[in-house]
Design a protein around this nucleic acid. Sequence first.
DNA 1: CAAGGCTTCAATCATTTGATTGAATGGGGA
DNA 2: TCCCCATTCAATCAAATGATTGAAGCCTTG
Lengths: 216, 216
Amino acid sequence: MDEWYLHLLHPQDDQGKRRTALLQAAFDVIAESGFEGLRTRSVAQRAGINIATLHYYFASKQDLIEGLALFIGAKFVTLHGPAPKPSGFPALDRLRQEFSDVRYYLQRQPKMLLVIQEFTLRGKRDPEVQKVVNQMNYYWRQSIGKMVAQGVREGTFRDDIAPPEMLNMLMSILGGTAVVPHDQLGSIERNTEAWILTEKVKKRLKKQKGAKRERA
Amino acid sequence: MDEWYLHLLHPQDDQGKRRTALLQAAFDVIAESGFEGLRTRSVAQRAGINIATLHYYFASKQDLIEGLALFIGAKFVTLHGPAPKPSGFPALDRLRQEFSDVRYYLQRQPKMLLVIQEFTLRGKRDPEVQKVVNQMNYYWRQSIGKMVAQGVREGTFRDDIAPPEMLNMLMSILGGTAVVPHDQLGSIERNTEAWILTEKVKKRLKKQKGAKRERA
DNA sequence: CAAGGCTTCAATCATTTGATTGAATGGGGA
DNA sequence: TCCCCATTCAATCAAATGATTGAAGCCTTG
């Protein structure tokens, strides 16, 4: 996924802004009523625009949906939770960033999560949408794959598990957080760290923590 | 979740059979086109029944959907993958049964998985559907919770992780398998066992495996 | 056989929905 | 100023859609 699409998020001209307003309206409608309740009329009304004008910007409903898919894809790669405090282990920081992102989506962007799920389902019967969904998944998997490689190389992550297997486990754990009560995310994060970090790093972290408590 | 609803799956009389045929047809339509494409006409046609007759069995489309939710809830608790070979550790067998179930759904019942996801999304805006979805999740979580308790009690599962936390991890791992390439499920199962089993049990299993290889 | 009620169906209704049309609007350039 | 063209809109169309109606079919019971 390249970055050519960023203009979608920050349109320059009036034309782009109206397009974006329509996409945002479509996003809201889907978040509220799902694809099941997506009506071109509702989208136009919510954007304060005539239906015919909507069809000026998007030839058909399908066009609107595909435009929204790209819009969401662009947002997905730029939305992040707050960065964790540096721990001295870059790969661990990246892992914590992943959990921070999940937390951010669950708590601050639940609509985004909903709409992504709607698109994931629609992708099963809509090849154009599927493309974008696949890109998002690929991007995410790739990013976690790099983190695993770095963690093992650095000695932050244990090396007795083959990196692709470690990647699978992380994908499953992170992806599954959606089915777990939201207030249990901390528990999952802690246990994931306990599972993935080497003993040496865990000891080092414990020492740091002890020193911090000392100072306080 | 009780078992009073089993009549939904094995109707006795003609009336029940026609009802079930309609539900099955609705299930198929949703699997193919989602709620987005659910039309009473398609359902009736697929069941080879007149639309008015559909409305005789289900007063409204909403009625049909709620009926289908119960139907799926009933199927959910009865569908299982093949039972694993007994390992000598009951809790481990239950864990393997869980993975067997996931594998079964992914490979043999992908439609069921799709439709459950559709209902999960719809539940967000439909309280009646939400009830059934919640029941299914509760049932599943409960079942895994019992397994964890048994595993720790037996000494099959490690005891240095609080059972509720172990439950969270398992839910996340199992729930996340949907986002991982299906052929990686074996890798996840192996690593989950490696994570959850006590050293003693792992050694015992390795010895069994060695003996088996000896005999061969 | 006749009565009564459960079940089915073709036909129809009112509304919703995606899309189009042709006229109006308004700003920029010659 | 006048023209051009991109943009916007009220009005409208044809098809789709959830639901209803009234007649007919069929089985059980007396």
